[in-house]
Design a binder for these strands. Structure first.
Lengths: 136, 136
DNA sequence: GACAATCCCTACTAAATCAATAGGGATAGT
DNA sequence: ACTATCCCTATTGATTTAGTAGGGATTGTC
């Protein structure tokens, strides 16, 4: 399965996407909102920054923002950034190589179809469908 | 990526598939043929046996055979047996859950389409296409 | 019945990876 | 100056991976 680190990264980007246009979010805010250990999140956000997904503002009133619109960041981008490629073709091919390639292809296909704008929308729909209706 | 243990299991089953009908193969034979540490392979074969993929014959002239025809064993069966499920749905669903489910679905789809009879055929074709032609 | 080749079972270990935590340094707004 | 923020390196404990070790049980052959 996906590592916690990677899941934290996805959640952090999602939080930043929701906050986009409202100034920077501090590490602590993101950590609180998504239940991520703050010191761990710090390293993750630095990683995301180095790969061009986030930008940071230092000093007081500082924090993190997305470097690009949520629409232009795909789940697959973040996953590849944190986990590296799922399968790397080696020099010698056996019967299984082509199958790992196929698996990689379909997996990439799934996560690259989803950008963070659509994740926000999905999240809203999920919240809507899960809100219990207490009316009589 | 896939663990070495799982890859060894796949290779072992493939070796047994190729040997099917020609009596049992010893652990050592499989280990030599597929370049797997014999003591490690021992544990893997036991695991495969407990899950009904292989059978063993003890004593001299003993060894391992496939418990079913190669056609009836799929790659996905072996992988699930060794690695467990890639994703297990938890009690609480978030935006990502449905995506992991979809990823699991497509991945399972790929490896469950391939049985070991077709792997043998693929291997033969690969060997054919890779044999260098030294004729003038 | 002795012997040798095989599978069977439990326990142990070394290395790598995962999931953080710790301690300070640099920067910027007030 | 003070404080809230990000920045960087190093360290740690737990878990998983990839084996290894030592012996026990079974069965065919002489």
């Amino acid at each position: 399965m996906i590592s916690k680190k990677c899941l934290y990264a996805l959640k952090a980007v999602l939080a930043l996407a929701r906050h986009q246009g409202a100034g920077p979010m501090t590490i602590q805010q993101i950590a609180d909102a998504q239940e991520i250990p703050a010191r761990f999140l710090e390293a993750i956000l630095r990683d995301l920054k180095q790969n061009g997904f986030t930008e940071s503002i230092r000093g007081k009133e500082g924090g993190y923002i997305l470097a690009r619109p949520a629409r232009e960041i795909r789940m697959g981008d973040i996953i590849t950034c944190l986990e590296g490629p799922w399968y790397t073709p080696g020099p010698d091919t056996d019967v299984f190589s082509t199958i790992w390639e196929e698996a990689d292809r379909v997996l990439t296909g799934v996560v690259n179809q989803i950008d963070f704008q659509s994740l926000l929308k999905r999240e809203d729909e999920l919240r809507f469908s899960h809100t219990p209706d207490y009316s009589i």
